[in-house]
Design a protein around this nucleic acid. Sequence first.
DNA 1: AATGAATGAGTCTTCATTCAT
DNA 2: TATGAATGAAGACTCATTCAT
Lengths: 189, 189, 189, 189
Amino acid sequence: MKEELTRQSIQLFERKGFSSTSVQDIVDSLGVTKGTFYYYFTSKETLLMDIHLRYIDDLVARQKKVLDSNESCRNQLTKIVEILIKDIQTQGSNVRVYFREMRHLSEENSSVIKNKRRMFHLTIEKIIKEGIEKKEFRDNLDPKMTTFAILGVTNWSYEWFDPSGNISSKELASMYMDFILHGIDLKGE
Amino acid sequence: MKEELTRQSIQLFERKGFSSTSVQDIVDSLGVTKGTFYYYFTSKETLLMDIHLRYIDDLVARQKKVLDSNESCRNQLTKIVEILIKDIQTQGSNVRVYFREMRHLSEENSSVIKNKRRMFHLTIEKIIKEGIEKKEFRDNLDPKMTTFAILGVTNWSYEWFDPSGNISSKELASMYMDFILHGIDLKGE
Amino acid sequence: MKEELTRQSIQLFERKGFSSTSVQDIVDSLGVTKGTFYYYFTSKETLLMDIHLRYIDDLVARQKKVLDSNESCRNQLTKIVEILIKDIQTQGSNVRVYFREMRHLSEENSSVIKNKRRMFHLTIEKIIKEGIEKKEFRDNLDPKMTTFAILGVTNWSYEWFDPSGNISSKELASMYMDFILHGIDLKGE
Amino acid sequence: MKEELTRQSIQLFERKGFSSTSVQDIVDSLGVTKGTFYYYFTSKETLLMDIHLRYIDDLVARQKKVLDSNESCRNQLTKIVEILIKDIQTQGSNVRVYFREMRHLSEENSSVIKNKRRMFHLTIEKIIKEGIEKKEFRDNLDPKMTTFAILGVTNWSYEWFDPSGNISSKELASMYMDFILHGIDLKGE
DNA sequence: AATGAATGAGTCTTCATTCAT
DNA sequence: TATGAATGAAGACTCATTCAT
């Protein structure tokens, strides 16, 4: 039941936004009563926090696995980009809620999430730095800004990419790694 | 007064989100009454639509100016990226509302905005295509996906970039054009 | 309207108690809507505080008048007892709410009321002390405890006295002053 | 368990009032679940009735003992006052609930309690009447009103008397009997 | 151009109670 | 003897909107 409430909520939060989705909407969509909702969640915000934690914890865990693989920086980065793009397909709604609704967490809760986000970010930064040292990447890059650029490319996909369309998430990920590695400029310039 | 209402609303919508900001909040922040609000706007949504239209129309107009300049594709693209990044400084709140709150427009209104967004997008796509033909850009790029990638880099900046920090918006724009043109890979590879 | 809301609320709070009276009950009894209630009161507690303040402020003011009259202590005390007993007739419901529902005020609000109550109490204590010094009252009385005893006699009347019954409030006040002054013991003992 | 539920409930009812105390509050304070509560009590009101009955039955029983002692009226009255004041120390919370929350009993239940209260009251009235006849007390007293005055003095103590303070309940009872017997007036007047 | 009073539907949340286990 | 899941009604409070003035 808790699982089902969460799943339905994610769908509704994605479609109408957190504040515009009422607890009534959620329980109606499952044919249960509001009491049931409050049996499982102490508040609407608790549910939102659950959704956030679930995603970021899982993501960080998967990122750690990549890091532990000890592959080249380029490969590590590729794998992370693949993870992010594939998540659109497997849990797009969840991630969109994660991107859009953090504002509705309390100060306390949102700072917990922010810290975890920062850790995710810092890990990518570390990969960039290492890549520069190992001469995999250009040495005139600002690791922090570059990380933001890469995350911009991937995260923005959540706003438009439809994995059931012409282009598969695998293809998109590979296109994007090409873009990230080589830019759009004609070679030699 | 209408101007002031709009300005305050943008601040509040940015901070708390559209649905979580009440008309009461808006008028309280200006020391007027709700009647005043409804004298200038027929509904809360009208105000949101105003905010959207104002930004996208202005943006499209500026984009047109760039296009009419007849410079090289690379320069045109650079100018558009500069516009987008500079907007963070000059009207960040407005743009953040524009990015986040479109969902709260009615079907009808939101399709108006979507069309204008699409036009903005298509124009960039056109620049990319032309750049490929003119051999300014690589010929194995998918213009549509590449446009999304570029917009990802710039638009995502609204989520984190602080123009009053160490890096100026000018510097960021130049860093990002470098990234977009050359990627992160070591040259020659 | 605010006046009417207050008056009705007092009646309902007396009959059913503060927590068992819903805002719905209040507005229903006047044929208006909940919005109206919240237009005039920021919360149910604010209304309760209003009721408390109104009574205690008025009572203290009337007590001050008695004090300023410079009559004998016995007469001053008599007048205060008369005030308290007469209030049962003129604003019994109000006072019963005042006696019973203070618990439902916030810490902050209830301490405001408590302080005013204490002042009322201390003024009576002062009259007793002065009466002892002026040899109007026995000198082996504890002024504080005696004040509580006197207030017990009068305030408890709110639990049972029906001013529309056989005994008028004037008669009751005089009976009680007799009791307070002479007790029940046979004279000379 | 039933005993413990009752004890905890009394504490909570005293502190927050009957309606503002939820069954959840009660069971939480004991670390059990709501099911447990409903195993022992058929409703929240049943519990309140239990609390009322328990106190009034015990009080009436103790009053009867005093009556059966066949002492002088003055001594009987003294003993009853002592009982009431001592109860503040030994079961203050219980009595405060008894005084304040009768309103939340159903018509039927509350009339049962009211009858027992009346009996307690009538017994004191009888002692007063007998005291007048036996020339222990003044003959110009109204027995009913006098009983209310005496009960006012004692019952009001529940609103303020702290048995752990400077004055013991024994001392208070003796002070109050002095007040009841002799009033505050200087002797001889 | 702006206000103040009012509405009615809707918000999140709590509650007493039930019942299968 | 006690639990855990669920209900449905009611709780306080908010909100976008209207309208006479």
